[in-house]
């Protein structure tokens, strides 16, 4: 491994961290504005033109808030838990290609931190570790509401990991490789996987809602029942890290969905790159749209949906795909 490679990797890591932290913040601005327009009000308007500086103001507020560590919590774990959420969200970005390979000043840039052979599996695995943020945060807080939220988080996240894994098995069989770039190239030749595997797409989409904890599956930190769930005892930037992790997760899952099912960046031209960004923006918009439109469901209804509806459908999908591929 030469030093150029090391430096390039480090630069890529820093760029991804900076851009996506900023995007997580700007994502909250878009959420507030889009939700507001759907609800016939204006959203942030006063801080900066059209309220654009609201994100900066919120960031400053979170950084300067007093960092309260309640007595009775397990201090070290309490402090680590938000970092785990944010860190795993960004670790998943290591295997996602954000743009097609391009050359600038004669130097080829691969906008993917590590093109490992097991790309998809790695992304799913690291998102599975993201479970530990709410889990440890809730267990370490000496608060019954946080404990209930942790129990819900553990059961929901583990159940929906099964669905993400099973629903991805059918497209994997067709593509034959775990790498996200291979998925993209397969779709260039054979058409979007959205059309050849619609059921897998829908299952993965529903599981994405559950894994990111968005309405209608927003019950881990549901403030109508559990105050703020595992985040109840957190204040200031620690809570901000939970928040950043949630929004970064939303962005990365949108990238994964666009790459896996909707053609990714196509043939690698500028139009393809813009199309990828457009698809990601569309998926993110749908996350927000659903939050404006629908109420939440109860935890037991969520588990019923996972084990009695989605999992059988995923297994049937795999069996059918297997048969079709054999004959």
């Amino acid at each position: 491994m030469d030093t150029a490679f090391i430096i390039e990797t480090i630069v890529k890591i820093v760029v991804i961290l900076l851009i996506f932290s900023a995007l997580a913040g700007i994502g909250t601005y878009f959420e507030r504005k889009i939700l507001a327009f759907m609800q016939r009000r204006l959203g942030p308007m006063y801080v900066g033109p059209f309220g654009l500086l609201q994100v900066a103001a919120d960031g400053v507020k979170l950084f300067t808030k007093e960092d309260i560590i309640p007595t009775g919590v397990v201090a070290k774990i309490f402090k680590i838990a938000p970092v785990i959420t944010a860190a795993t969200a960004f670790m998943a970005a290591a295997a996602i290609p954000f743009l097609p390979t391009f050359t600038v000043f004669g130097y080829t840039v691969h906008p993917i931190v590590a093109d490992i052979n097991v790309g998809v599996l790695y992304v799913l695995g690291v998102m599975a570790i993201g479970l530990y943020g709410p889990l440890l945060g809730g267990l370490a807080s000496a608060n019954k509401f946080a404990l209930i939220s942790t129990a819900r988080a553990a059961s929901v996240f583990i159940s929906y990991e099964v669905i993400t894994g099973l629903s991805l098995l059918a497209p994997l069989m067709m593509v034959g490789s775990f790498s996200l770039i291979d998925f993209n190239n397969y779709q260039v030749d054979n058409g979007w996987l959205l059309f050849s595997q619609p059921l897998a797409f829908i299952l993965f989409w529903i599981a994405a809602f559950a894994e990111t904890g968005r309405t209608p599956f927003h019950l881990v930190a549901n403030d109508h029942e559990l105050i703020d769930g595992f985040g109840t005892e957190y204040s200031g930037m620690r809570w901000g890290l939970f928040f950043i992790g949630e929004y970064a997760n939303m962005f990365f899952i949108s990238f994964v969905m666009a790459l896996l099912f909707c053609g990714g960046f196509g043939d690698g031209s500028v139009a393809g790159a813009l199309a990828l960004l457009g698809k990601v923006a569309f998926f993110f918009f749908v996350f927000l749209w659903v939050r404006a439109a629908w109420p939440d469901i109860r935890p037991d209804q969520l588990m019923w949906l996972c084990w009695k509806v989605l999992m059988p459908l995923a297994v049937i999908n795999i069996v059918i795909t297997g048969f079709v591929m054999m004959f």
């Binding site: 939700l35 609800q39 549901n222 439109a293 629908w294 939440d296």
Partner: peptide, 13 residues
């Protein structure tokens, strides 16, 4: 009641 269910838009309407 609808807000308690998570249906925020109904609250505003």
């Amino acid at each position: 009641a609808l807000l308690d269910m998570g249906a925020q838009t109904n609250y505003w309407y």
